[in-house]
Nucleic acid binder design. Structure first.
Lengths: 254, 254
DNA sequence: ATGTCTTTGTGAACGCGTGCACAAAGATGG
DNA sequence: CCATCTTTGTGCACGCGTTCACAAAGACAT
C-alpha cells in the first residue's frame, strides 16, 4: 500500500486528493438524481457522463474511497450515495451562520441547496440595527454584537461571509476567534486566517473576468471597437517570443 | 474547478496557462487598491503578499505577459494595471445578461463588482410575467420570450444563468443559439454546450460540501468513522418531500 | 464448470503547476 | 566608471492530477 510515507503537514491526512474531494459533490448530485428515479446501479461510463467528467477519472476517484463497485455490473447507486455522503461528512448536521444579509446574504439564506445536504442555517447576522429582528427566509436577523454568543451556543464551525469587502476581514477574525474553523467567503478580499482554518472563496467578478479573457481570445482580432485607439491590439501572434505588443503607450506614467 | 463540458486543448498554441489567467483578476484587484492609494511601484514580494500568493509564482505569472518589471525596483502599478486589464479583455465593454431574477439574480444585478470592471448589465430576464417591467437594480426585467432579440440587439456574448436547476439547460440552449459564447452558471446542474462555448460554474452547495469534508477531518480524527452503529443513526437518503437541490428553487422571486 | 463478456480498479506514462535558487539586469552610491 | 545592492526573470526539479490501457474480477449463458 502506501509505501512512500508522506509526512507532509496537514492537507493530506488521509489520502484522498483535493481534486477528488472537489468532485465528490458532483458525483453525489448525479447519484441522487439517479436514486430518485429508482435506478439501482450505474456504470462508471454513465455516471461520468452525467457528472460531466472522464470515466477513468471517476473510477480513480472512487478507488480512493474503496472498492464499492462490482465488475461487470457497475456501482450500486444507494450504497454509493451513502458512502460519498459519509466521506464528505454530510451524514451529520452542520450549523452554518451567514454574516451580511444584503442581497447576496438573503439569496444564500433562501438557497435550497443548503438544507437538502445536511447544512442548517443556524443564524443570520448583520451589522445594520434596522435589520435586526426582521425575518429573512423565515429566520430573524440577529445583530453582529451577538456573533460570538451565537457561534458558541450553537457550536457553529462553518461561517459564510457575504459582507462588503471592507468588513470581511474583521468579521472573519471574530468568527475565527469565536470558534469557526471553515469559512466560505463571498467578499472580494483576501482573508488572512490562522493555521487550521479553511477558507474557500467565491468571487463573481473573478469568474466573469476569466470568461472575458476567453471571450476575447475567441473573438480574435475582430475587436468590435472598444475604446478606439489603443483598444486591445490583441496581437494574435501565437509564436514563441510573444511580446504582447508591449509598446502601447496608454497609461505609461513613469 | 469544474466547468461544464468545454475542453480546450490549450489556449491557442502559445497561450497563458489557465492557472495564471485565474490569478490575474486577483493581481488586478490588489493593484487597483494600490493605485487608489497612489502607490507608484510595487515589488513582487509586496504584491504577492497582498494577493495572497507566492512571490515566485507571481513573477512567473507576469513573465507570461511580458517583461513589465524593472529589476531592482519592481513593477509600475499603473502600467501593470493597464497591461493586465488589456490581457483580460477588460479594456472593452462586455454586455452581460442575467437570466433568472430571483434573490440571487437580484444580488448579481446589484453587485458593484460588475460595472467597475468593464461589465455592463445589458438586461435582466425572467420567465415570470409578474416580474416583467419591474425594475431591479434600476433595470426593468424583461420576459424570457424576448431573450433572443435582446441577445442579438445588444450583441451579448456573456450570459449569467441564475435560474432554478430545471430551467438551466433550456435557458443555456437558447442563449447559445442566440449567440452567447460564454456562460456563468449558478444553477446546480451540469450544462452541456457545443464546442467553442465556455462555461464556468459557481455552486454554493459544492463549496460548502468541500468545507464540510475538511471540517470533518479536523474534528473527527479519532472518531472511528467506520460504518459501525453510530453512523447508522442517519438514514442516507430520505428526502422524499424535499428533493435534492435540483428541485429546490435555487432562487425565489423576490 | 467453463468460457465469454462486461466493467472495475490500477500501474504507468505524461503534462501541468509550483517553488527553489540563481544569474542577469538595472539602480544607486562612491 | 566601478562596486555593490536590489529585484526581476527563469531554468530546473518535483509532485500532483489526468489519461491510457489492460489485467483482474465478477456476471451470465451454455
Amino acid at each position: 500500500m502506501a509505501t512512500g510515507r508522506t509526512h507532509r503537514p496537514a492537507t493530506r491526512s488521509r489520502g484522498i486528493p483535493e481534486a477528488t474531494v472537489a468532485r465528490l459533490p458532483l458525483y453525489l448530485r448525479a447519484l441522487t438524481a439517479l436514486s430518485e428515479r429508482s435506478v439501482p446501479t450505474v456504470s462508471s461510463e454513465e455516471l461520468a457522463a452525467a457528472a460531466g467528467v472522464n470515466s477513468a477519472k471517476l473510477r480513480k476517484d472512487f478507488s480512493y474511497l474503496g472498492s464499492y463497485g462490482t465488475r461487470g455490473v457497475g456501482y450500486d447507486v444507494e450504497y454509493l450515495v451513502y458512502q460519498i455522503s459519509r466521506e464528505l461528512g454530510l451524514t451529520q448536521d452542520w450549523p452554518v451562520v451567514i454574516v451580511g444579509i444584503g442581497n447576496l446574504g438573503a439569496a444564500l439564506a433562501n438557497y435550497g441547496g443548503f438544507a437538502s445536504r445536511g447544512f442548517r442555517v443556524a443564524a443570520l447576522i448583520d451589522a445594520d440595527p434596522g435589520l435586526t429582528g426582521k425575518p429573512v427566509a423565515g429566520i430573524p436577523v440577529q445583530h453582529t454584537d451577538d456573533l460570538e454568543k451565537i457561534i458558541k451556543d450553537d457550536r457553529v464551525s462553518i461561517g459564510v461571509i457575504a459582507t462588503p469587502a471592507g468588513a470581511a476581514q474583521q468579521v472573519c477574525d471574530r468568527l475565527v476567534a469565536a470558534g469557526v474553523t471553515s469559512i466560505l467567503n463571498f467578499a472580494p478580499t483576501v482573508l488572512s486566517v490562522p493555521d487550521g482554518v479553511d477558507v474557500r472563496k467565491v468571487d463573481l467578478s473573478i469568474e466573469l473576468q476569466i470568461l472575458a479573457f476567453h471571450e476575447q481570445r475567441k473573438s480574435g482580432e475582430e475587436t468590435a471597437a472598444g475604446d478606439g485607439g489603443k483598444a486591445a491590439a490583441v496581437t494574435p501572434r501565437d509564436d514563441a517570443d510573444q511580446g504582447p505588443d508591449g509598446d502601447v503607450p496608454a497609461v505609461m506614467p513613469a
